[in-house]
Design a protein around this nucleic acid. Structure first.
Length: 475
RNA sequence: GCCCCCGUAGCUCAGUGGUUAGAGCGGCGGUCUUUUAAACCGCGCGGCGCGAGUUCGAUUCUCGCCGGGGGCACCA
């Protein structure tokens, strides 16, 4: 079969036809052709000339005429080819194309008897020969492995996939518009870091040859961004990849896209209202019509109340491992008795609360042990001013009033070092550069991290992160 | 890392311990100047993921490996 296509390629060249021309100027999107003739009656002709280009997706021959479907990013259009218009050579060569070939077509718009908007081809050009057969035209490409590993085939075969990644692009563009309009500066901080930090996760390690030194791929942008707040940039954001050395799951890809933004003189309540406005704006901009109600304001509930409601356990009335294990057992909940108190609280949250949070919900006020960079709560001892935001049974954002007291930050790092000594793998390494920056004086600041892949999952109604990442990490 | 499931034509799939493994789409040839999963006629384009074993005989049974999916663990 490849030989058929290569044979055609060779014959084209022998006849002086360039199978891979350099350009095709003047192409318009297929969607524009549809929009321009939306009101046309079946059987009606026009003089309107259009030039489109795309992949040949289907062909229906009728002897001295034929219908060809051409697909571009914006849609699909039918081309009507006629022997009497194109001439013997032009007509036969057009029918000799293979499905998957890239073609440019000039033609006039008309609506067929069956009411399909079409272009009556007056001329055409081969724009690139395809040497491999495309996926099947009716069922499309369904094999999951091929769809992920060879995304180009998925994109050409499955319109939903194309639409999804166009949606993703719109989500990201809308986020930038929203932040830019509010005076946030987009910045770029190091991906390769001598010390990782800003999240509780294990990093990937790499090596710089001429420096002779190991470096880490960042697990978060947090600490560098706050140094920019110290520097007086006041409102900054970074939208980019973080890398965490952890397993794959429907909600986790080892490299993922994170938005973090920081705002001087704001606290976590300001950030919460900004997040709900941002996401509501994005939902509107991309035309979201799913089951999640992004209309503001979103539900707000404290971590204590959320866990209490779902499990009957009051984590603030059981502030050590023993009493929390006992309280959970009293409610018939089995917990891992080897875990630390903050881990147990996290367990209760992620197993018993998170799955139930279908509609957007802020969970507020976390134990300090879980949050080494969040500022102590102004009225609740032992807690910090932090929220995580959930929707679709999944966390997609994490924010706090930033800790800006350098001495307390130093103490938090020391506590993390203590946990690390106890075998906690995801603790924070001590970052002296960061503490020193805080000593320079950081204004009161609110900050947040938003998982963009997860936000796209919500907007697209997908349950797997691999569906919304173009080239997901494969086993 | 663990558990379960899957791996047949370019694509979507069916199938059997036994003579030359099937269908649709795609491809090739033919009829057909408004069809649309076009239709109709003709042609199968594959040693059934890889390796070993059981068996007279394996695509089909067993084991291992590779690849994938789902779940768990990990993780936010």
């Amino acid at each position: 079969m490849d030989e058929d296509r290569r044979g055609k390629l060779q014959r084209l060249r022998e006849r002086g036809v360039e199978p891979f021309p350099h350009a095709f100027p003047g192409v318009g999107p297929i969607s524009v052709v549809h929009e321009a003739h939306a009101g046309l009656e079946a059987g009606e002709d026009t003089e309107a000339v259009h030039r489109v280009a795309g992949r040949l997706a289907a062909r229906r021959g009728h002897g001295k005429a034929a219908f060809l479907d051409v697909v571009d990013r914006s849609g699909r259009i039918q081309v009507h080819a006629r022997l009497d218009v194109l001439g013997q050579d032009g007509f036969e060569d057009l029918l000799g194309l293979d499905l998957g070939d890239l073609v440019g077509v000039d033609g006039t718009a008309f609506k067929s008897r069956r009411g399909e908007l079409s272009l009556k081809a007056t001329g055409w050009t081969l724009l690139a020969k395809s040497l491999l057969p495309p996926p099947e035209k009716f069922h499309g490409l369904e094999d999951v492995e091929t769809r992920y590993r060879r995304r180009e085939l998925d994109l050409m075969a499955n319109e939903e996939s194309r639409a999804l990644f166009i949606l993703r692009s719109k989500v990201v563009a809308a986020i930038r518009r929203w932040l830019d309009a509010r005076g946030f500066l987009e910045v770029e901080t190091p991906v390769l870091q001598p010390l990782y930090g800003g999240a509780l996760a294990r990093p990937f390690t790499t090596h710089h040859n001429s420096l002779g030194r190991d470096l880490y791929l960042r697990i978060a942008t947090e600490l560098y961004l706050k140094r920019l707040i110290v520097g007086g940039l006041e409102r900054v954001y970074e939208l980019g990849k973080d890398f965490r050395n952890e397993g794959l799951s429907p909600k986790h890809n080892p490299e993922f896209t994170m938005l973090e933004f920081y705002e001087a003189y704001a606290d976590y309540t300001d950030i919460a209202s900004e997040l709900e406005q941002l996401v509501a704006y994005v939902a509107t901009e991309v035309g979201y019509e799913g089951e999640i109600d992004f209309a503001t304001p979103w539900r707000r509930v404290t971590l204590r109340d959320a866990i209490l409601k779902e499990t009957g356990v009051d984590v603030l009335a059981a502030r050590d491992r023993g009493s929390l294990l006992a309280a959970a057992a009293g409610q018939g909940i089995e917990l891992d008795s080897t875990e630390t108190w903050p881990r147990l609280v996290d367990d209760l949250l992620s197993k018993h609360v998170e799955p139930k949070l279908a509609q957007p919900t802020f969970i507020l006020d976390y134990p300090v042990e879980l949050s080494p960079f969040a500022k102590a709560h102004r009225s609740e001892p032992g807690l910090v001013e932090r929220f995580e935001c959930f929707a679709g049974g999944m966390e997609f954002a994490n924010a706090f009033t930033e800790l800006n007291d350098p001495d307390e930050q130093r103490a938090r790092f020391e506590e993390q070092a203590r946990l690390s000594a106890q075998g906690e793998k995801e603790s924070q390494p001590y970052d002296e550069d960061y503490v020193r920056a805080l000593e320079q004086g950081m204004p009161p600041t609110g900050g947040i991290g938003v998982g963009i892949d997860r936000l796209v999952m919500l907007m697209a109604g997908r349950s797997s992160i691999r569906e919304v990442v173009l080239f997901p990490t494969m086993r």
